[in-house]
Design a protein around this nucleic acid. Structure first.
Lengths: 180, 180
DNA sequence: TTCAGACTATTCCGAATAGACTAATCTGCA
DNA sequence: TGCAGATTAGTCTATTCGGAATAGTCTGAA
């Protein structure tokens, strides 16, 4: 329901067609929110079936007519409900994509360290690009702030892991290769 | 490919059948890793097609025969590759499920604060249960540690948001109801 | 002894998904 | 002015996903 909440929230500020909605999400929220075009269109069509939004066909020049969606009173009610639901309970985030960390001890420190450094570089790049994203209207700013805070925390944690690995490597004595 | 990495990683330590694998993931990693039973079975069957695992039919008592999977040499190669790939590049986490925060300013402080407190309670509960999860073999411990670190950071951030809202509420003067 | 409810183990099938595609218009530059 | 490449707008379809169903076994309590 989060994706519906997002679409409704955007439609509250302005009537929009599917492409426009997808663009708005893709450019402002980037890779942080997964909502592909076909999915956006399907959700809009579903919400129209549910009476949460309606649409008018609009034509500009010779271009094919497009469906401009607007939120309905029912949609507004749904938005208010979904917003309260979403804010009120915390969903733990999925860490499937970080599962490699669970097998870190399968690698020697010599192999693990460069990989973790590469990982660190990617995190820093993302942190910078999020910071550089600049001003955003209203609470979108809040989301970016949160992202920056979390990335900084994870970076900090990763540094402790790297430090520990370095120490372990040092204690054992630096052996040129990996012990087979 | 993360789910394949996880299954291969578990099979490296011990031959297992699908149900057992699903159980191991569900109980140890809880809600942090999404891998439903049908998906686990399908991934195993796909990996068998790819030659990453093989299986033997095993029967216990009158129970229907079950497929006990084992990792192959090819699977081990795949595991090593996937592990390095996964550790080396950082995937930004999806924050779709926190999108409500982007519309926080649509609510009055009077309405927002109790919701954020409820959210906070959920986060603290998760933090405690993660901390209480106790000792885990090898680097699984590392994953839990990471989870704790990130939850603590997000809790900290949420507290600043709550504090700001309280201040704003104070500045404006506490009006009993919501201005319509 | 039987029957309800829980557990083991897997599969089916409809729903959701997103990469690739279509098709039209605009843009700029040679 | 012509046309290559980018942009706008939306859809098709093959794949992926997971809730629910299936089918059998165990446990314990009445």
């Amino acid at each position: 329901m989060e994706r519906e909440l997002l679409l409704l929230g955007l439609l509250r500020s302005q009537d929009m067609h599917g492409y426009q909605l997808h663009e708005a999400i893709d450019s402002h929220l980037g890779m942080g929110v997964q909502l592909t075009k076909p999915t956006a269109y399907r959700l809009l069509s579903n919400m129209a079936d549910d009476g949460w939004v309606n649409f008018r066909e609009e034509q500009e020049g010779n271009r094919p007519p497009r469906r401009v969606y607007a939120i309905t009173q029912q949609g507004e009610v749904a938005f208010q409900r979904l917003l309260r639901e979403n804010l009120g309970n915390y969903q733990p985030s999925d860490f499937t994509c970080h599962i490699g960390l669970a097998f870190l001890d399968e690698l020697s420190a010599e192999e693990a360290l460069p990989l973790l450094h590469s990982r660190r570089t990617g995190m820093e790049a993302l942190l910078e690009s999020t910071r550089a994203h600049g001003e955003h209207p209203g609470s979108l700013q809040l989301m970016l702030e949160r992202q920056v805070h979390l990335l900084a925390a994870e970076l900090e944690w990763l540094d402790t892991v790297i430090a520990r690995l370095r120490n372990a490597q040092h204690e054992t004595g630096v052996q040129g290769g990996n012990e087979t």
